[in-house]
Nucleic acid binder design. Structure first.
Lengths: 309, 309
DNA sequence: AATAACTGTTCCGATATCAGCAACAATAAG
DNA sequence: CTTATTGTTGCTGATATCGGAACAGTTATT
C-alpha cells in the first residue's frame, strides 16, 4: 500500500470532482482509484467523502486532509526535483577558492573531469592560499587544507593530507642521513609554512608520543613547488605534503626520511556556507569531489611502502 | 515502486547509521532495505550515500534530501493522525448554538445518536433563535436556517428547508380553500418570522415567476410550534417549514394549500469559524450531521405526494 | 597477524499484490 | 422512460515484493 499513491489518488479525485475523471487523467482504470480511496479511508479510519452513490462530496474531515495532502505532495515533488539533478542538466556558475599547489596539481584534473559530465557549469576559480571570506566575497565553495572547524560553515572532508620528510640523494650523501629527530638540528631545513612553524617540526614516534623538534631553517618559502625544487637541487630537507612530492619519491629523486615517525594529520576540506537551500551545483560538485578523493589518495598509494621503510 | 516506503527506509537508514540496523528496527530483511535504497537513488538519479562497502556516508545531496524527507514524513504522520479519529476516542466539549424548533425536533435526536457513538463528548447546547457571535461567545458551532454566506465563517449545508402553506380542515371548511395567491388577502394568516416578513409572502408559480402576495397578518409569533398549534385550532393559514408540520400534514390534521406554488428555498447550515486546525470534534460532528440529513429530509419524504397535488 | 564478526549486495524461488476488465447497481440527463 | 454515466465489486493474470542464503569486503578482537 503506497501511501503517497493513495494520497495522490485522493487529491486527484478531489480536484477532478469524480473518480472517473481522476482515473482518466491518471490513465488508470477507475476501479483502481476507487480501491485506493477505500484503502485510504480504511487506513485513516475516517470517511473522506460523503458518498451518494453518484455524487462525491468532501466531508470536513476530508477537506482538512485534502489541504494537508496537497501540501505534502507538493513537498515531495519539490524534494525529489531538487534532489534529482536530471543528470547533467546542471547549469550556472560556481565560484571556488582553491589552494595554490593542491589546486593546481590535483583539483585541476578533478575539475576538468567534472566539467566533462556537466559542460554547462562555468567555473570561476581563484587559486590563492590566503584565507578568504566566503560570504563576503561571494564564493560558493572553498577548498582548504587544514584541520579547522568553523561553526557557521559546513566542512566536508575530501582527502587526508599526509606529510613526509625528504631530501635528495645528493644532499644525503653530502650531509648524511638523519637517524633520529635530534639530528635534524645539524641539517639544513627548507621550511614550508602551511604545515609547520618556523622553528619546530612536530613529529610523532612509534608509541604515539609527540616530539617537538627544533630545526634550523635554512630557507623559508610559502610555495610548495619552489621548496620541492630546492630539495631536488640538494639544498636541504623538506617536510611537505605527499601530494606535492609523491612523484619524486616514487622515482627516487627524493628519499623519505625518518620512516618511523608521523606528522600532524591534516586533511583537504570543501567548505561552504550553511544555506537552507544549497544549490544543486555546489552539492553535486562536493559529492563529486568526495567520491573522487575517497579512500587512500592516489598520490599516497605508491608511497605506502616507501615511507614505511 | 512505493515512494513512501522508499523514503521511509532511507530516513531509517540515516537515523540508524546502517542498513542492517534500519532493517532490524523495521523488522524486515536487510536485502529489502538495500533494494529500496537503490530504487530510491535510481528514481532520483542521484547518489544519496557515499558507499565504502562497509561505511555509509551521506552525500550532500542525500543530506538535503534527508532533511526534507524527515519533514515530509512527519507531516504525513501528523495529517493522518489528525484525520483518523481513532474511532470513538473523541473527547472534549462542543458548544453549539441551535435554532429552537428545528433544534428540538430534529437536531435533538441526531445529537443523541452522535453521543452514542462518542460518549466522551460533552455537549453544551444553546437553543436560541437569536443571532449569536460564534467567536465572541465561544461557540464551536452554530446551526442556522437561512441562506446566508458569511465570508469569515464556513457554512456547510445540512438539509433543504421547504416551506408549506397549510390550514386545518375546520378552518378551510369555514373560510373556504384559496385557489390562488390573490385570495389570500381575504384569509387570516398566522405569520412566522423566520421565513416571511409581516406583510407579504413570496410565492413562485409553476413558471418560476415570483409573486409577492399581500396578506393579512392575523396573528404574529416567533415560535413555530405555537403557530402550528394555532393553525391546528383553526385560527388561520400558516406558511411554515415542513419540518414543523410534516406529521400533521401526513395525518391530515393540516391541509397543504396552493400546491402549484413554491416558496423561498432555505437550508439548514452548520456554521463554524475558519480556523487552521479545526478540532476533530467539530469536524466529526459536522460530518455526522451532513450524512444524517443527506438527501431528501425524512420530514419531507412523506409529504412529497401531498404537497404536489 | 589472523581469525571472527559484521556490513552491504546480489540472486532466487515462493508468495502476495495490484492493475485491468467486465458486470452490476444506482443515479442524472435528455 | 430510455440512455449514459458513475462508483463498486469480483475475478484473473502479470508483476512485484519478500525473505533467506551465499558472497565480497571491512573492522574488531584475540
Amino acid at each position: 500500500m503506497d501511501r503517497f499513491e493513495n494520497m495522490q489518488a485522493f487529491v486527484r479525485v478531489v480536484e477532478a470532482g469524480s473518480i472517473s475523471g481522476a482515473a482518466d487523467r491518471m490513465g488508470v482504470a477507475k476501479s483502481v482509484v476507487s480501491r485506493r480511496l477505500r484503502e485510504l479511508e480504511a487506513h485513516l479510519g475516517a470517511e473522506l467523502f460523503h458518498r451518494t452513490t453518484r455524487q462525491m462530496n468532501l466531508t470536513d474531515t476530508g477537506r482538512a486532509f485534502y489541504q494537508q495532502s496537497v501540501r505534502i505532495l507538493a513537498d515531495v515533488l519539490e524534494a525529489e526535483h531538487a534532489t534529482s539533478q536530471s543528470h547533467g542538466a546542471l547549469k550556472g556558475s560556481l565560484k571556488v577558492a582553491l589552494p595554490l599547489s593542491f589546486g593546481l596539481m590535483h583539483l585541476g584534473p578533478a575539475i576538468n573531469e567534472f566539467l566533462q559530465a556537466h559542460p554547462d557549469i562555468e567555473f570561476d576559480l581563484d587559486f590563492n592560499d590566503r584565507q578568504v571570506d566566503l560570504l563576503a566575497e561571494g564564493f560558493d565553495l572553498a577548498i582548504r587544507i587544514a584541520s579547522l572547524a568553523d561553526s557557521s560553515l559546513i566542512a566536508r572532508r575530501l582527502a587526508p593530507i599526509q606529510a613526509v620528510m625528504c631530501a635528495s640523494p645528493a644532499y644525503l650523501e653530502r650531509m648524511g642521513t638523519p637517524q633520529s629527530p635530534a639530528e635534524l638540528i645539524n641539517h639544513r631545513c627548507l621550511v614550508y609554512n602551511l604545515i609547520s612553524n618556523y622553528e619546530h617540526w612536530n613529529l610523532r614516534d612509534a608509541e604515539g608520543q609527540w616530539i617537538k623538534t627544533k630545526i634550523t631553517p635554512y630557507l623559508k618559502a610559502s610555495n610548495g613547488e619552489f621548496l620541492r625544487n630546492a630539495a631536488l637541487a640538494g639544498l636541504g630537507i623538506v617536510l611537505m605534503p605527499t601530494f606535492i612530492v609523491y612523484q619524486e619519491i616514487a622515482s627516487g629523486r627524493l628519499i623519505p626520511l625518518l620512516p618511523g615517525y608521523q606528522y600532524a594529520q591534516l586533511a583537504a576540506y570543501a567548505i561552504y556556507p550553511q544555506t537552507r537551500h544549497l544549490s544543486q551545483r555546489v552539492r553535486a560538485f562536493v559529492d563529486f569531489l568526495v567520491k573522487r578523493f575517497d579512500g587512500l589518495p592516489y598520490w599516497d598509494v605508491c608511497l605506502q611502502d616507501k615511507t614505511q621503510e
